[in-house]
Design a protein around this nucleic acid. Sequence first.
DNA 1: TTGTAAGCGTTATCAT
DNA 2: ATGATAACGCTTACAA
Lengths: 363, 363
Amino acid sequence: MTPKTFWAIIKDECKRFGSGSQRVTVTLKDIARQVNRSVTTVSRALHDYTDVSPETRALVRRTAEELGYVPNVVARRLQKQRADAVGLILPSYGPRLSDPLFGDMLSAAVEEITRAGLDLLVSIAHCPEDEVEPYYQRVGERRVDSVWIVHTRCHDARIAYLLERRVPFVASGRVLEDWVFPCVDVDYVRGMHSLVSHLAQLGHRRIAFASDSAELTFVHYQREGFRRAVRDCALEVIEDLIVEGSPTQRGGYDAAQTLLSRRNPPTAIIAGNDLMALGVMSAIQDQGLEVGSDVAVAGFGDIPLAETSHPSLTTVRLPTQQMGKLVGQMLVMSACGQEIPNPYKLLKPALIIRQSTNLDLWL
Amino acid sequence: MTPKTFWAIIKDECKRFGSGSQRVTVTLKDIARQVNRSVTTVSRALHDYTDVSPETRALVRRTAEELGYVPNVVARRLQKQRADAVGLILPSYGPRLSDPLFGDMLSAAVEEITRAGLDLLVSIAHCPEDEVEPYYQRVGERRVDSVWIVHTRCHDARIAYLLERRVPFVASGRVLEDWVFPCVDVDYVRGMHSLVSHLAQLGHRRIAFASDSAELTFVHYQREGFRRAVRDCALEVIEDLIVEGSPTQRGGYDAAQTLLSRRNPPTAIIAGNDLMALGVMSAIQDQGLEVGSDVAVAGFGDIPLAETSHPSLTTVRLPTQQMGKLVGQMLVMSACGQEIPNPYKLLKPALIIRQSTNLDLWL
DNA sequence: TTGTAAGCGTTATCAT
DNA sequence: ATGATAACGCTTACAA
């Protein structure tokens, strides 16, 4: 027996009955030894190859079961040259993990990803500079096969970078450039149209829009949709009534205060998201006005709170689950190196009318 | 030149200048060939081993830079027998990813985990049966080195299972058994005590508690703390005023309706979390009563909405960031096979008094 | 200071 | 139907 063989055996034994409390690691080699076959045959038996005899297959499977064999995915990944994982790096400027709509989308995506046997890696960028490089980094290191870009900006450095380097990715959100890449988004123009039409029908003529920064693509489309819808309803676009604020309750509160102090205040305020809309409602109430009668309010998203707030909030429901599911499926495909047949999906939102624009409801 | 060598070279070339648009993959071998050194030397140079000459080191580093070398972490993991990753499997019964407090904690944990160079894998259990096995599975497959258990139950099958199989893990939340394992939790008994004392001082004598199922450890401690605190304040524990509901606004709403319809309704209602508390407030308001004067309300958590609700909500702030940071650090240690010095951390919450128990504030 | 060789656990190729 | 061998890219013990 050569020294080499000797040490190999010792090491194997150590691993098997390890230092006291260690878990044992069963490999293909262990099964092979047990059933007196080669590692190759064992591997094929476990993968249901046709060129292995039924008896051998049965024996191998049984032995694997008995020994508690669990395949080592890292070894498989190295051999297959695939990470079997996709990455999500949350941008530093939101959405936070705590955003309920994002959570919904994420859950649906995770479902699809894990169903396909892939892992989802989550990390967080600390600063804007930190946003671009890590994507490429993680793919280069073979940590992930594809990445998920969320919360796109109108001109998004991450997407330019990934396209240039040919890193597989899927974006939830569009960019304004005319680039082709896998992308899932909501038709905000359409959503805004239904909302503005609703308000115009109720007789509102001075409608305001308060939102996050228009650098974000979805805000851009909300604004564009807002302007177009106002004109479509034969109303005048009043630029003074289009304001920007942080995408929080406080941001909505402050924006509403600004709007209500205009010489000619609006009779309806649309917010870019539901949290801002709740802040808008607070501001209106704090001024002694009534939401729904004095000033109508509407949001975007349909978070759970929209239904239970006082008054309940009219909003544009975003198909978060559907988005997440689609993104997940597309991520799986792109991670597997497949072409994505129709890579540009635009989903339709739904107008949910509640008391904040129509106090007669459920009263 | 043997055929073998020939094909190896061809394959290398194909990989390098791949089929048109493929990204190139630079390995240690490529650098080694370029600088006329062995792979070993290159590896050592890049890892700052002392036994490599300064010139070689410089040359290797420069060449690596030029070629755009990125280490393959999968290969490294196979060699090192470590996944360099930790796993989080969200239980089917909550918290959802959309829970804002959980999101905060998760962010802080991710920060620590990625800082250590590890990955965080996120997945979701579909059903309770699906909760136990995947943890072990993922460790067995070498996907992760350690797992994070959230939202523990009083008698938690997951923890029993992992302890028995000696799978490294960290739990956020305790169990009632007397087991030793890395664990971070909040002192709910203490939080409840400060809350009940506050209410008792305001003259409340009939205090109710509405919460999620007491199967959850934190709910168990909230209840125990509640009973003890009531007695400490020389009040009577009225079991009729301790009720259970789903941990949502609707759950709080329903629970409050039940409580307010008692022959002897409470003058103060504590909810197990802030969302329930908001539901409680809605129910009170819908009955034409005033929150803060007719019935006091308090919650647990201090979500952003607690501050901006009408009236603002008295609550027990949970140190989510601190928890996340600690959990992250402990996960990193357990993934690295280190012993965790003091594995049982109990953090102190803080009472935040607002209008829902004291209308005089800021009015 | 550098190189050789073995090995991590798996899959693929080719020969038998 | 089965096995020998190489390979994936990296680290490391040991030899030179």
